[in-house]
Amino acid sequence: MVEHRPFLTFLAHFVLIVGVAVTALPIWIVLVTSTQEASDVLRAPIPMWFGDQAIENYKAVLGVGITGSSSGPVGPMLLNSLVMALAISIGKIAISLLSAFAIVYFRFPGRMLAFWTIFVTLMLPVEVRILPTFEVVAGLHLLNSYAGLTIPLIASATATFLFRQFFLTVPDELTEAARVDGAGALKFFKDILLPLSRTNIAALFVILFIYGWNQYLWPLLVTTDESYYTVVMSIQRMIQAADAAPEWHHIAAVAMLALMPPVLVVVLMQRWFVRGLIETEK
């Protein structure tokens, strides 16, 4: 800092610690609740320190689920969420790499039209076209399937732009050299562009994994079959059931299971995450 002001430094730490504490408080409470016995969390004040039921509670929700919520065990849901998150993030990255490659490295009629068509998807989130998109998916018999859960979400303007931006910075000399060596378009893409894009792919993957895992409205629309439920969308049914038969210790365990994977991805891949977040908004 410019001048030495111990009081301000102290104040800064104080404000930050309060901020961190308030941010973490709800997670702490839910984490602690997930280790209690049902009878200990029926009324406030609920315990603020760990109970001894952690293993039992997590086992119960993973294998059996929440009674009265009609949504089954959480184990398979976590698997569905994982499939959805991976399919969406890998799918988005793959088709965006291909389209960005086509747009940057080829000249063909309709190139700008293709570019703008992809751009428009930015302006049409699922939330604004709920009913007609549902009808399309139903018409294609994709309800209650992994294809229906993922394919409609894997078009991505942001990923395409990011890769386009990056490809434009790749020196033309590389392309020329590849051509001189007799490499065709696909070989150039596979052996030169893809390896160069690694860091961008990693950064984007973190953001898209979170996006895919956290999908809520879309799985709610296209799944009616329990075996395709994802954990994030099922939490609502569980809370509804809790009003009749409170199982807060189990709901807390489900919430922890639902938020752990994306939070771990962010914490462990923090550098990629920050980079991806800032890059995708350019």
Partner: peptide, 23 residues
């Protein structure tokens, strides 16, 4: 090849974005 590379993204965009929005 360019059209082929664009095909997946454009197909998804048209079927699941533009068509429902126009609907």
């Amino acid at each position: 090849l360019a059209y082929l590379l664009l095909a997946p993204q454009l197909a998804i965009t048209l079927i699941f974005f533009i068509w429902p929005a126009s609907q």
